[in-house]
């Protein structure tokens, strides 16, 4: 087909917008790798930070991020998968309960992350933690009713819930209806059909979705500012009620509250690079699992 000037103009303009985005992405990654990579050393990754937060390493932040992410996964992912199974396998799509759950999931996905922070503070710390304290202890010093890695993880579990639900549902939908029919026609109960046919066939997709959700949760900072992240903590959290250091929060605190931001710059870039590597390797893992599970469905 012959292209006119206007054709070229439209292709050019839309192409330009793509180029701008890709360029920004490249600059971002380039800058972070360029300034961050020289900072990375065995010492940086394994040592505790010095008292000025600039010298030394970021091991407690790495540890705290991973620990928190694991707790969050344990708390949120089973609930998310169960909800997706309920929506896709049990509830009829037109039932009121399914509609309400779906509406709730969609809205939960749109709640700003800082509002989750307020929720964690108001619900988990003040209400749940405070109630436990007043039941168990006479002493007014809070034991449970204070920021901790437990409450931060639970808050993030709620935040990642909609992502887990939506991606798991997508994975369940890829299992052909014929397989469910075959199983039911053989006298399987609905639960047996889900457990033996649907879940094994959706495994790869579910895992991919879960990892994507987890990687999103791992990098969120706003919700944990008041729920458990610590500016500086020379020890590692061993108890669920301990506060913890977090890579993302460390970046925020160091970049905005450090008395000498210029001196902190190398440490900052290094920390950002570690955080990016952590979330990207999770994403990469998800992509690999997705590709492999797609290949497995073919004969």
């Amino acid at each position: 087909m012959r292209h006119t000037k206007k054709d070229w103009l439209l292709a050019g303009l839309t192409g330009l917008s793509l180029a701008v985005i890709l360029l920004l992405l490249a600059v971002l990654l380039g800058q972070i790798i360029w300034h961050g990579a020289p900072v990375i050393s065995a010492e940086f990754l394994t040592e505790k930070p010095g008292a000025d937060m600039i010298s030394g390493g970021i091991w407690p932040a790495i540890y705290g991020t991973v620990f928190m992410t694991l707790l969050m996964t344990l708390a949120g992912v089973p609930v998310g998968i169960a909800t997706a199974i309920f929506l896709n396998e049990y509830a009829s799509p037109r039932s009121r309960i399914a509609k309400v759950v779906r509406l709730a999931v969609n809205n939960l996905a749109g709640v700003p992350s800082i509002v989750f922070g307020l929720f964690g503070l108001g619900f988990f710390i003040i209400f749940v933690g405070g109630s436990i304290d007043s039941l168990l202890y006479d002493d007014p010093t809070p034991v449970w009713g204070k920021p901790s890695i437990l409450w931060a993880s639970l808050t993030l579990a709620v935040l990642t819930l909609p992502v887990v639900i939506v991606t798991t549902e997508e994975a369940l939908r890829t299992v052909p209806r014929e397989l469910r029919d075959a199983s039911l026609a053989l006298g399987a109960t609905r639960f047996q059909t889900v457990y033996k046919i649907v879940l094994p066939n959706a495994k790869g997709g579910i895992l991919t979705g879960v990892i994507l959700a987890v990687s999103r949760g791992a990098g969120e900072v706003a919700p944990i500012i008041f729920c458990g992240a610590a500016n500086f903590l020379p020890y590692l959290p061993t108890d669920l009620r301990d506060m913890f250091m977090h890579l993302g929060y460390h970046v925020y605190a160091l970049a905005t509250q450090s008395p000498n931001v210029d001196a902190a710059q190398p440490t900052l870039f290094g920390t950002v690079l570690v955080l990016l590597v952590l979330t990207f390797s999770l994403n990469l893992l998800a992509v690999i699992i997705r590709a492999r599970s797609r290949a497995a469905l073919r004969p």
Binding site: E178, A182, I197, A296
Partner: peptide, 12 residues
Amino acid sequence: VGMVFQKSNPFP
């Protein structure tokens, strides 16, 4: 009462 479907549907 078993059933065989139009499109063969073996499990993977």
